[in-house]
Computed example of a mutant assay.
Amino acid sequence: MRKRVLTIAGSDSSGGAGIQADLKTFHEHGVYGISSLTTVVAMDPTNGWAHNVFPMELHTVNEQLKTALSLNLDALKTGMLGSPDIIARAAGVIEETGIPAVIDPVMVCKGEDDVLHPENLESLKGTLVPKATITTPNLFEAAKLAGYRLITSVEELEDAAKIIHESGAQYVLIKAGKLVDETKATDLLYDGEQFHYLQTDNFDTNNVHGAGCSYSAAITAELANGKSVMEAVKSAKAFIASAVKEGFPLNDYVGPVYQKGTHKEEIEVSVTTK
């Protein structure tokens, strides 16, 4: 039977990120995507692509989750959630189902100031991230979760991974970008004992909209397909590198990654463990 995977996340009206990116990525990995929408994000083409965020009511999210939870899910991921109540409900779904859960702790819209209110951050830290099979913050999000103002060194990167792991997440994947090596795209996977550095070539492009959503969705799909966390992350790393390489400008404001993953097999992912 085809695996069934849930995304609890926001909608990107431009189609590049959020549930749109998740569902495209699920499809590319041969799993059936199911969605529960938490937020609608629209972009104003008459005002420099300014983002307008429209959160869903908890009741609306709950009604969607009733549908999703009746469908025998194999894995789930979360993205933009929008309120402490919805964050708590997502944590409850993980407890109820016991399935692998990928927590992408989305805190900002591209080009926007921090859209995550302080109470939402505390809910993420205390309620949701501790339930994660794996959480996938970028450097900004990892700093917020670990209590840093910024992460500026490898030592701080590793310390942040430890702090987030100690909160309860089984695995922590921090998307470190060029922090470790200017010539490579580097991510740090921490399992509570060892640091695993995954690297691919760095592609010089601005067309990276939806990269984080697609990466975490690929991990989710691979976990549903029975891969270990390391196998899932390594496969997803190759997939997202290919998607970034094939990204394109959508308009004057945004360039999405292309989730087709056509050239995934051409991407070399090196793993260094310490």
Rank of each mutant, 00 (worst) to 15 (best):
T186V: 14
S216P: 11
K234N: 01
C213G: 01
T220M: 03
G226M: 12
Y215A: 07
N207C: 07
S216K: 04
L188D: 07
H209A: 02
G192V: 14
V208E: 03
A236Q: 05
K237I: 09
I240H: 02
E222T: 08
N202Q: 07
L188M: 03
A243Y: 04
D187R: 04
A217D: 04
D201T: 09
N207H: 14
Y190Q: 13
A236R: 01
S235Q: 14
T200K: 00
G192R: 03
S235V: 03
N207I: 10
G192Y: 10
A238L: 06
E222A: 13
A232W: 01
K227I: 00
S216Q: 03
A236S: 14
V208Y: 01
F195K: 08
A211M: 14
A232D: 02
Q194K: 15
A218I: 04
N225T: 10
F195G: 11
Y190L: 14
F203A: 00
L189D: 05
V208M: 07
A236W: 00
G226C: 09
V233L: 06
V229M: 08
A218W: 00
T200N: 03
V233M: 08
A238I: 09
A232V: 12
L189I: 06
G212Q: 10
K237N: 00
F195T: 05
L189P: 13
G226P: 13
H209W: 09
S214M: 04
D204V: 14
V233K: 07
T205K: 12
G210M: 10
Q199R: 15
N206K: 15
G226L: 04
M230W: 00
A217F: 08
L223K: 00
A238E: 03
F239W: 11
Y197N: 08
A238C: 01
E231V: 02
F203S: 05
E222R: 05
F195C: 14
N206D: 14
V233E: 09
Q194C: 09
T186G: 06
L189N: 13
Y215W: 14
K234E: 14
G192S: 02
T186A: 10
